[in-house]
Every structure is written in structure tokens, then in C-alpha cells.
Design a protein around this nucleic acid. Structure first.
Lengths: 353, 353
DNA sequence: ATGAAAGCGCTAACAC
DNA sequence: GTGTTAGCGCTTTCAT
């Protein structure tokens, strides 16, 4: 840093051409003789000029080539979540070759102070991706709207200006529910994702169930009911983590009236339930069936393979990337709902008689 | 985007002041009357101007406020690795409040084509963080050097212009090795991290062991020897993943001459070894001891807690962030080696007699 | 305390 | 083909 390097003007002067010609030599956009071009390139090399300063280019073109990725209020949770990670991977993989960068932006803490994150407030980004998804009135979304930044929303309310990408998890859960019923299960419990940001844990009564703020949770639960299953109990967790699934499993699978099947609203939760069941001496897939959703690869569950509703995470990330690119190009991508598929594992089986 | 929003000039005009005054109203740097300031702010609100365009500011100041994070050649692997993730988390957490953004940059594929990633080549960043660490001649590092971007290297060769952050994993491994010897273990096997990018799997002979390209692997292995342990066998893995640890465990713990202890060069590998040992009917911590390094939280290993060498991952990320900020401010941070600590779990015990 | 003017480095019209 | 001329939106001396 410090000493500002040579500029395009320096190179042009050294090469004995005008600045605009030098610019063409680098961008390649426009007519230019091979010799002139080479002359410029040589001069650049001599001055150890490393190419046009992106800042100048950005100001001129009005675009930064940066896609802001707004991750849930606690970044650390987003990073721990294999689901977000895989989507992020697909996204970066798609955007990179397009020359677009991914800027990580912590979401504003909705619960805490109203003081927004400086990045969300003012970082240069041409389009934002909302991993948190969520309602239209989330403060991150309001901030971005105000700035006029178009957004790609993952699994949330459709944005006014932007795109929406999601998966048919509702349909997937309905399908799963039907399959469990077909296996003879009648007492089915649900281990749910968080209802909102308030980190409650335990059985959720009907009233509480009517007050779900997180769309994904609401939708997956609705899917189960759509599949004809009325859960004997819905257990709310504070986060989609193995340990919370295990805690739920211990609570639900103890006692005489235990359910014959447990549906968890994420694979991480489901795997916790499997571990708890094993702890309690239950044979998973026989004494109790457990299923999740996401389609994660969980090698440490071996020899079991979790029965799950597979969602195409990488593809989701790629779709988000394409939508962002289209938005950047001035288009208006249609809302996209990706299909899910049932993955039969070893953790489900006929209801014990 | 499309319709460019109002500019500072528009606001100034609406407020009946000059552009420079309007600028002061926003930056706060300089003398300005409260009334004038308010007048400007009101005009801005009326025009729904959302604050100075970062691009203009950046061009003027010559800095983008962006820290490029160069993640290993396969981003997806970096994202799957809880170690990188936690460091990344600490980094973002530190940089965010400083108003600095984290830009994800895929590293150039050293094996593949020499065509560098467009982002690495030309994205605006004031400083880069190299997660891959690595040797001074890695192509990503060469590219950044050429661009004159200072770098913070994590666990690698010290950069010419930049900072170096690492942990004393060598010392930690030496300590671990001594403790195992003190427990009476004499036949100790090592499950190693990858030696380089060539994804080999299996026993590494002496010749192969002399050809380790990844510094971290080399250093941790050296630490074990420094602790007085000459491994009876070194098993090379293609990636730090549970399944590869499990494969190693199955291979190493079968047969009559099996080691009484296994040291893995990562916790993920170690946990795979634990799973394999359980599969084989061995009591971990009694029949065989297993230890790792990283200090990950592995709830699904319950009821076992892995014996490990704890490295302060979050702190590492924070230190990287601070070093980046210091570099940005023109400083020259000293190389930093963070301490590690031994974490005794349930997976190690006295050697069986 | 405020305004005028210069210019950060670059690209895009347009003229030659 | 190449050069000339304007800015992109902002900050920052330097006058006033």
C-alpha cells in the first residue's frame, strides 16, 4: 500500500499512446492494433503495472462486481450449519467464474440494538443474497430496500425488487409423512427447528405453534400436516444442532407412550434423535423410526444412513448465483422452487406392532 | 440498479449548501453547524439519499475496506472443514465492527490451468488473508505479491510483505506424544493429514514421508517425533474428513500387531478412528487410545469426549483480523504463534498390559 | 463555518 | 485505429 503504484496514465505515457488506447489494450473491448496493444503491455510490464485499478473501473461503471451475502444474525451459527455452507459453496462456485465476488455481511441483530452493521449500511454491493430468508420486515431487508440494493431471498417472503429461490420442502415433508403413515406409524412426534429468535426449548403447545416466525419451520410443519399426520407432540429447539436433537430425543423417547416415529425438521436434529435413541437402547428403524430433511451426508452416523428428504443444496447455491447475476444484468428472475427427493435410509421401518 | 440514485451533489443542491459541506455533514470530520448539518440530513431524507456512495469514497481514499480471504483450492473443502470455519468466524467477527468486509476468493487451482481466478487477479482488496497458508511459491501468493497486496498468512511460510499467524501445534503434538508415552504406550500409529494436493491414501513409507508439501502436516508429524514417539506406521489421508479417519482406523486397528494408541493429525480424522475402533469392538480409552488435535466440539461422539490438543480457533481468526487491520493502517505486525493446550478426554488411557 | 476547485483512476462517447 | 474530452461520486485542501 502506501506508495500508490503506477496508473494507466503513466503506462500510456511510457508507451506513447493516449490513456483511452491504453485502457483498450487491457479491456480488449474495442478496436486496437496488435502492435499498439503489445507496446502498451510492454510499457506496463516495464513499470510493473499490474492492470487497471478495480476501484476506478468500479466507480466509472457504477458497479462493484460484488455480491453481498447476508448471513443470519450470528455468523458463527451460519458457518456451523452444513446446510448454509453447502449453499454458500454452490454460490461462490457459480459467481467466481463470472468475476463476481462474495462479500460476507453479518445481518443486523434484530433482537439487539437497532444500530445496523456498517457493512450492511454502506458496503459497496450490486446485489445482496439473504440467507436468513425471512419475512419482508426483517431489518436487514428493510435496510437493503432503502439502499435500493436488489436482493435474492432464500426461502422467505418474496422481495419487492429481486428474486426468490427455495425448495419444495413443504411437499417433501408431506410425502415423508405419507410414507410413515403407510408404514403403519400413528404416533408420530416432531422435533422442530426454532420458531424464531427466542431460543426456546421444549414442548410447544397449540398456542405457541400458532406463533411461528421462521417461515421454514412453519412450512415444514405444515407439510407434515398436509401429509395427514397430526403430531402427538411438537418439540421446539433453540437451534438446528445435534445436541438439541439429542435432548429432544431423550425427552420424547422416554416413557410408556413414546411415539413410534420421530420426524425432525432438519437432518442435524434428526441425527441427534438417532443418537438419543441408541443411548436409550432402542433399535433405530425397528423400535423407533427417525427421519429428517436436508439430505446431509452424515458419516458418523454409520452404520446407519438417515432417512431424509433430500434438497439440492449445491444446486440451490448455483441457482442463487445465477439469479444474482441476472439481477445484476438488469433482469427479473422468476421465483424458483427446486424439487426435493425422498432418500430412504436405515433409520425408518414399519411401525412396531 | 439501473436508475442511479441521488448523489451528494443533488442533496447539497436541495439543501442549498455546497457539496463539500454536505460531505462534512455525513462524515462528521470537520467543523459544521448543527443546523446546517440537520438541513443537509433533512434534504437527504427527502430525496431518500442513503449516504455517500462507497465507490466514490473508496476511489478517493484509495482503499476499498475489503479484506480478501483466499480459501484453499477447493472452496467446498474449506467450508466443510470446521477448523477453517471457526477461524473464518473469528475473522469476520473482528473485521465487521471495524467496517471491513470479507470477500471470499477462490484460490487458483495450482494443479489445473495456470489461468488465475479473475477475483484474485483483479478484485479490489486492501489486504488478503491466505487460509491455505502454504509455501511462498504458491501461485496465489505469487499473484498477490505481484499486485502488491499485503497478505496475512495462516500457518505457512512468512510473507515478504505481510503478517504470519499460527499456533504452536508442533509443541502441542510433542506434549501429546510425551503424555501417551507416560501412559505406557509404545506402539503408536499416526493418521496424517494430506501430504499435498495429490490425495493419496494409505501407509506412507519413509521416502514418501520425506516429501510432505503441506507445512501443517509436516510440522505436526515433526512434533510427535520431537515428543519422543517414532510412529510404528504413518497413514496418509486424502482429506481431513471423518470417513477417511474411519478408513484409516479400520486398516490400522485390524490384525494382531495393532498399535495401543493412535494419534491423528486432526480431530475429524481422530473421530473417524474412534468410530472404527467401536465398530471393531474395541473399547476406546482402554483397548486403544485415540487422540487428535484442534479441540473441536464433537457432540455426536458422545458419550466419549475426544482427547485433543486444543488450538484457539476463534482467537486465531481474531488475531488474523487484527493483523489485517494493522497492515491496512500501514503497520507491520510481528509474526504471532498462539499457544495450544492439552484437553484430556475419555478416549485415552493407560496402555493395555 | 462554508464554498470553490481539483482530482482519485478509469471508461465511454465522440471526433479525427 | 487512435486521441480528446467528459465525467462516475466523492473527499480534501485552500480560500473566503
Amino acid at each position: 500500500m502506501g506508495a500508490r503504484g503506477p496508473t494507466l496514465a503513466d503506462v500510456a505515457q511510457a508507451a506513447g499512446v493516449s490513456v483511452s488506447t491504453a485502457s483498450l489494450a487491457f479491456s480488449g473491448a474495442g478496436p486496437i492494433t496488435a502492435t499498439t496493444r503489445q507496446k502498451v503491455l510492454d510499457a506496463a510490464a516495464a513499470l510493473s503495472y499490474v492492470g487497471p485499478n478495480p476501484l476506478g473501473r468500479q466507480l466509472r461503471s457504477g458497479r462493484s462486481g460484488i455480491v453481498g451475502v447476508v448471513l443470519g444474525d450470528a455468523l458463527r451459527r451460519a458457518f456451523r450449519d452444513p446446510v448454509s455452507i453447502q449453499v454458500l459453496d454452490g454460490l461462490v462456485q457459480t459467481l467466481g467464474p463470472l468475476g463476481l465476488g462474495v462479500l460476507l455481511v453479518p445481518a443486523v441483530d434484530d433482537a439487539g440494538e437497532p444500530r445496523a452493521d456498517p457493512l450492511l449500511e454502506s458496503a459497496g454491493m450490486d446485489v445482496a443474497v439473504l440467507f436468513s430468508g425471512g419475512r419482508a420486515d426483517d431489518s436487514s431487508r428493510v435496510t437493503l430496500d432503502r439502499r435500493g440494493v436488489p436482493v435474492v431471498v432464500i426461502e422467505g417472503d418474496p422481495p419487492e425488487h429481486g428474486a426468490l429461490i427455495g425448495v419444495d420442502d413443504r411437499g417433501g415433508m408431506a410425502d415423508l409423512a405419507r410414507r410413515l403413515r403407510a408404514l403403519g406409524h400413528e404416533r408420530i412426534a416432531v422435533v422442530a427447528l426454532p420458531f424464531g429468535g427466542d431460543r426456546r426449548e421444549g414442548v410447544a403447545d397449540a398456542e405457541r405453534q400458532a406463533d411461528i416466525r421462521w417461515l421454514v419451520t412453519e412450512r415444514r410443519l405444515a407439510g407434515i400436516r398436509e401429509g395427514g399426520v397430526e403430531p402427538v407432540v411438537v418439540w421446539e429447539t433453540p437451534a438446528s444442532l445435534v445436541e438439541h436433537g439429542a435432548a429432544a430425543g431423550r425427552a420424547l423417547l422416554t416413557g410408556p407412550d413414546r411415539p413410534t416415529a420421530v420426524i425432525a425438521l432438519s437432518d442435524l436434529l434428526a441425527s441427534g434423535v438417532v443418537l438419543a435413541a441408541r443411548e436409550l437402547g432402542l433399535r433405530v428403524g425397528h423400535d423407533v423410526s427417525v427421519a429428517g430433511i436436508d439430505g446431509l451426508d452424515l458419516p458418523w452416523l454409520a452404520p446407519d444412513v438417515l432417512t431424509s428428504v433430500d434438497q439440492p443444496l449445491r444446486l440451490k447455491g448455483e441457482s442463487v448465483g445465477l439469479a444474482a447475476a441476472e439481477l445484476l444484468a438488469g433482469g427479473s428472475p422468476e421465483p424458483l422452487v427446486l424439487p426435493v427427493s425422498f432418500r430412504e435410509g436405515t433409520t425408518t421401518g414399519p411401525a412396531p406392532s
